[in-house]
Design a binder for these strands. Sequence first.
RNA 1: GGGCGGUUAGCUCAGCGGUAGAGCACUGCGCUUACAACGCAGGGGUCGGCGGUUCGAACCCGUCACCGCCCACCA
Length: 838
Amino acid sequence: MNELEERWRSYWEERGIFRYDPSRGREETFVVDTPPPTVSGVLHIGHCYSFTQTDLMVRYRRMQGDNIFYPMGWDDNGLPTERRVQNMFNVRCDPSLPYEGDDLELARGAEGDAKPISRRKFILLCDTVIAEDERAFKTLFQRLALSCDWDQTYTTINDRSRFVSQLSFLHLIEKGEAELRDAPTMWDIDFQSAIAQAEVEDRQKEGAFYKVRFGLEGGDSVVIATTRPELIPACIALAAHPDDDRYKSLIGATAVTPLFAASVPIVADEGADPEKGTGILMICTFGDAADVEWWRELGVPAREIIGRDGRIKPAPWGRGQWESNDPERAAQQHAKLVGLTVNQARREIVAALEAESLIEGEPEKVRRPVKFYEKGDRPLEFVVTRQWFVKILDKKEVLLQQGRKVAWHPHSMSKRYEDWVEGLNQDWCVSRQRYFGVPIPVWYRLRADGTTDHAELILPRKEDLPVDPSAEPPRGFRPEQRGEPGGFVGDPDIFDTWGTSALTPLIPSGWPDDEKRHQALYPGDLRPQAHDIIRTWAFYTITRSYLEDGSIPWKNAAISGFILDPDRKKMSKSKGNVVVPTATLDEFGSDAVRYWAASGRLGWDAAWDPKVLKDGKRLTTKLVNAARLVYGYQGDPGEVASPLDRALIGRLRATIARVTERWDAWEHQNALALTETWFWSDFCDNYLELSKGRAYAADASAIATLRTAMDAVLRLFAPIVPYMTEEIWQSVAGKPDSIHVARWPTAEELPATEDDGCFDAAVAVLTQVRRAKSRAQVSMRFPVELLRVSGPESQLGSLKLVIDDVLDTGNIANYELVADGGAEALTAETHLGQPDAQ
RNA sequence: GGGCGGUUAGCUCAGCGGUAGAGCACUGCGCUUACAACGCAGGGGUCGGCGGUUCGAACCCGUCACCGCCCACCA
């Protein structure tokens, strides 16, 4: 950080310029639900972009007089931290191990196999890593001049967050909105955890359609198409479209699976697409979400063959469990598959089918979407497990309504929210089989025979939260009763990281006990976030607020775009195209980076373009140079009286009104452009030149105008380039307080003057004089012997008012004004004189 | 397959009913008492195509084409 930045950063901190004032009420307070960045090691330039965009609005609101509540949060809860610890220390968490003690030192980057460590030790390491990262993040954000109140910082794993997360979940249980289900759930076989719909993405994968012949009871046969022949042992039915003439006669008949000889019904279903494959398909437990639905409708027992590790499980063919016409053969066939991965099993089954000529023709290559956990490497499987779900499918309509109560910026982003809600097809699975997160605050009663009674929940009292059921016994039980018949067992799982993140509006608000604070801070004003997490963070937050008390969490959602690399590709570590902010900040400075962020509009992805940073740097240089000139003039300000001065202030008044309008419309990029154009063109290029003569002569009107205009334009720039505007405001202009708590400029605070056309007249003539000198290849101070201006009477009248300023600026000796009734604009003839004698 | 957004000067974008704009890049000139990491002047565009509405369309409507993103039950 350079000297200027460091000086003002300390000044702002010492003076508490950005501190929240709890004594002021909700109406005057602007509350930001800051996105807690995932503490995963590195911030990239995209973070600077979006966090700055939030800070722009915050600073604008502060100058409008709002009491700002802008906390920072660190999202340290969850998988990214676990992964980081695993890699950094080369360890893995083994919850069965006892705690090793505090003194165990682990070398970073140790060689060899990952060392197993206890859950408590693992969490301790997570805490250490987080603390380091949080320090680094804070330094960067402070350097960027994010005007947070750092006293309000929270983390998503701290006691307060765990308390809020657990309490809110207990409310959901009370209301019957959260329930434990033993059901097929999307499962990542590598992470060994359940996954929610929002964390799933489709990836196009190569596959092949195998056409497999099934027998029919009565001797005939039918050919189905499948990309997953390994699921034949899990087949529970065949389905065809009810209107498909080819299969109409088979509806209600019974088919027999190849190799496993299981009798399965043939059913009609609208969901079967006659165009796909052979038009008739097999329903398995479970190939995909559709299978799960079909299985529920059929009401038959599942035949689950894929285990949590993604490998084929043993199956109880015969013995009255899994029906088969030839249980021995089925068992024999199945035994060959046990322990194989899905892909291995597929090859095995295809070979067996081919050996019996049960595959028709060549497998047809297809590309089709396959579901993956967004952070995972292998396809998801549907596995029956016991998980906690929050009921959302029955609330689609009301969640759409809640979404419409939020103002989305840009508005088109609301469509993404609505599309997501309308497309929901699963309740929210909130339990995760991970370690570093908020524990699910539930114990279960053990029956006398030692089995778990999942219907007998033991819930903690509010005053005991947060709890860790895997470490603490519930009230009324002794630790020794854990796992004993008649005793208890703790829920081993943690919440989905969104389960806690969805409550970020409640974490710093003091909910539910500090009612006064909560009333002042909830619902919030602004949720800034990127568009990729509308379906998770925005959706879950709206959902949890609704479930908690029917409220919406905030009034506005400002959606920022991504920064792409110059080829418009997403930045990612693996591609090596990530731009690291520190180098950019070193090279261009924070103000320039903020200028760059301000030039991009909300919701729009932008390609990384360092040229804009140069523009930002250029602007701050221009600002300080202009200010040195303006505040350097000697003389006392008087009334804004001269025609040119009155016109300039009139134009500034109009600019302030338009700029303010753009800020209120969440268009910081247009606010910046309008401010910059006025400053650069009207003020610097034209007014500063036209006023020099009078200003050097200490003309009271010119001095007043220069200072008034500069004071206003500095404030217009203050949210965007906070360091340089503060430097000028205090060090150059000598103002006593921070510009960042100065009031936003208004047209009303300025002298009530208007632009009556004389400014344009002066500029029109001046431009033509400059052009003449440029063509004659002489300097701009070269003397003009005679200036003859012709044009319409009214414009000549305007020009007459400011002619002295024009003559002085152009170094013009004599002039003539010639009325030309037919002309529309002023035309200037410039007769150059002789160079000034030295 | 459904939806959303985009297509304006070589590049990045603004304008969204009234005679085409900015910055960068390019050309020429200038060290003029704020600024050469600067200033001044200038060249450059049938505003994706085709229809329509209108006195008038980059801007409104329809349609097509491409680009990006979001979503979609993997048979």
